[in-house]
Design a protein around this nucleic acid. Structure first.
Length: 622
DNA sequence: AGCACGCCGACT
DNA sequence: GTCGGCGTGCTC
């Protein structure tokens, strides 16, 4: 008999080994086995057992022994194949996610045990209840926080009486929900994520694979080889951390849905507002909406400031007044700006000349300590005191960042501090403020908003909302809209939106809470332009010595462009980050119903001296 | 990914 | 005549 075995942490697919049925005992798909590979013994997973093979007998090695029988469940085996096909990677790379390094492949023998049956819970919406009864897959979406909180515990109870529940949520939600979950399910609630330290993570993994639990994690938890998956919950599908940056660059939402489909269990998604992809699935009846997506928004404390009236200012008089009031009342005030640093380009206030890089003529970025830096070639220089053309000494700082805002606010006599780190940073700053009785204005990029998610924010100022939706990226309008709507739904005591495009329908629809209208419009735009969800994008990145890469990319472009139904965007040379090899990025647009691996052949892209990285469903175009 | 093989230059 | 640099290619 022969077994097709996949070895984690290798860029390999199945390798065939032989076994005598009586020797290691009978082998099954999902077994964890030890096999010889080269001159070593490695641990792998059996994907398939069969009676014949095309490989010549002298090349075939025997299975050494079985570490754990039927450890990987059939639904997870299907997920492995799906993920390798979808994310255009090897099975070995996906298996690594299921059997991570920390457990070194030594999985314990497993006992299947069903969670304690629980009584006395409220019944779920009938369709969802039916799905649980019949053991059916389905995706249920809720957009209202109150509704989601009502459903959450009943969904878990219902699912947990049947097997394990995997809950995927960002850190900010975890700090809120974990204590509540622990109060009900005690020890059966287990955290699993990368912030918890290797030792703890290993202990969590071993407990989770032994018996049923309520698992709470971020994206990696979606791959856990739980005994029996009976429900998945995904909170805040717009959270950026659901997308993995390393290969395979999976999105936890998509993996969760695929996994639930193979495991035939329901998925509950809290999406406020839903993503365009989810909205499309709701519209065509693939997902079920449990409530409404639109919000009732109280506009009395929301102000849109037309910055065309205040061209030269970073902070409008209205915002300035409110920030001063907030300081006086010791209320938490947040200033949001989309960029870090001081300024993305500097121009002479007198003649309009833009400071440019001496080497490549790209606009210089003003960084701290009076220096300028080129983001294309990495050159760095002393910031000049005078304009080279007219000798003027006044400069305008366009497209300012966090540091510039801090500088400007301080000049205006506003106590403030920048927040750069994670959510904890702001919690700390807030706690600090509570202790000292003084709350400076907090200035930052997205984290500054995320931090305050769980409480009602005080004053929030969007300093330059334009940069949110004018970025040339098909997702930028969706991102800007969801940022605004999720903030509005948290009802800040006062919100100021500074923009030079107050008439943009995006703003009006957000301020009216008309989520469905916006998403419908967005779907129309995506359909017309041929973007997701109507098309699928795959980014292929090449890096290496410039000349070699250019030649190779051109060759790949000519090979890919002849394929039917394929459209190529680029290639584009990416802005260089510090020193290193130049990177080129090619975006392949394919029909949404095609599996990427059916079109993109990894082996053909390979080149000995070029690093190739494939990102399916990239988050950004650049 | 690792790891061996192999073909070239520098050294005993 | 040997050691070791890394470019190339394979793993059942």
């Amino acid at each position: 008999m022969f077994a097709d075995v996949v070895v984690p942490r290798t860029p390999l697919d199945e390798l065939t080994y032989r076994f005598a049925p009586e020797e290691p005992g009978e082998l099954h798909p999902g077994d964890i086995v030890r096999v010889p590979l080269r001159r070593k013994t490695v641990t792998g997973a059996v994907l398939r057992v069969r009676a014949d093979t095309e490989i010549s007998p002298e090349e075939i090695q025997p299975v050494i022994d079985v570490v754990a029988s039927q450890f990987i469940t059939p639904d997870l085996l299907r997920l492995l194949r799906w993920a390798a096909d979808y994310y255009v990677c090897h099975l070995g790379e996906v298996l690594e996610l299921v059997l991570p390094q920390i457990v070194s492949g030594k999985a314990e023998a497993v006992t299947a045990e069903i969670g304690a049956a629980e009584n006395g819970f409220n019944s779920l919406p009938s369709e969802l209840e039916q799905a649980f009864n019949a053991g059916n897959f389905g995706v249920w979406v809720t957009a209202q926080r109150s509704e989601f909180q009502k459903l959450l515990f009943d969904f878990i109870r219902r699912a947990f009486s049947n097997g394990s529940v995997i809950i995927l949520m960002p850190e900010a939600y975890r700090t809120e929900f974990l204590p509540l979950l622990r109060r009900v399910w005690g020890e059966r609630v287990i955290e699993y994520h990368h912030q918890m330290g290797k030792k703890q993570q290993k202990a969590a993994w071993q407990a989770i694979v032994r018996t049923n639990h309520v698992v709470v994690g971020m994206r990696s938890a979606v791959w856990l080889p739980v005994r029996r998956l009976s429900g998945v919950i995904l909170v805040d599908e717009n959270a950026e951390s659901f997308k993995e940056e390393r290969v395979p660059c999976y999105h936890a939402r998509d993996v969760a849905v695929a996994r639930a489909r193979f495991a035939s269990c329901p998925v509950l998604v809290f999406a406020s507002p839903p993503s365009v992809e989810t909205w499309w699935n709701l519209r065509r009846g693939k997902y079920h909406l449990l409530d409404r997506v639109n919000f009732r928004i109280d506009r009395t404390n929301v102000f849109v400031v037309d910055m065309r009236q205040h061209r030269r200012e970073l902070v409008s008089p209205r915002a300035l007044r409110d920030l001063r009031n907030a300081l006086k009342q010791q209320q938490i005030a947040l200033c949001y700006i989309n960029r870090r640093g001081l300024s993305r380009y500097v121009e002479c206030a007198d003649c309009g000349t833009v400071l440019k890089c001496s080497r490549c003529q790209s606009p210089y970025i003003l960084s701290g300590a009076g220096r300028v830096r080129c983001r294309v070639c990495g050159a760095e220089d002393e910031a000049p005191e005078r304009c080279a053309v007219c000798q003027g000494m006044n400069f305008n700082y366009r497209a300012p960042g966090v540091d510039m805002v801090v500088r400007e606010l301080k000049r205006l006599g506003i106590e403030c501090q920048s927040v750069t780190g994670g959510a904890q940073d702001v919690q700390l700053a807030a706690a600090d403020a509570g202790a000292t009785g003084f709350a400076p204005v907090l200035v930052g990029t997205r984290t500054v908003l995320r931090s305050d998610r769980l409480r009602v924010p005080g004053l929030v100022v969007f300093l330059n909302f334009d940069t949110e939706f004018t970025i040339p990226d098909f997702r930028s309008r969706e991102r800007a809209f969801s940022l605004l709507v999720s903030l509005l739904s948290r009802k800040p005591s006062r919100l100021i939106i500074q923009t030079t495009r107050p008439e943009d329908p995006l703003l009006e629809l957000a301020l009216q809470g008309k989520v469905s209208s916006f998403l419908d419009q967005e779907l129309k735009l995506r359909a017309e332009a041929g973007f997701p969800p109507y098309k699928r994008l795959v980014a292929v990145e090449f890096s290496g010595e410039e000349k070699t890469v250019v030649n190779w990319v051109n060759k790949m472009v000519s090979e890919l462009s002849v394929l039917p139904g394929i459209e190529l965007l680029g290639p584009v040379k990416l802005l260089q980050r510090r020193q290193g090899n130049p990177q080129f990025r090619l975006i392949v647009k394919l029909p949404a119903n095609l599996m990427p691996a059916k079109v993109i052949d990894r082996r053909k892209l390979r080149h000995p001296r070029i690093r190739v990285r494939i990102d399916v469903d990239p988050r950004e175009m650049l």
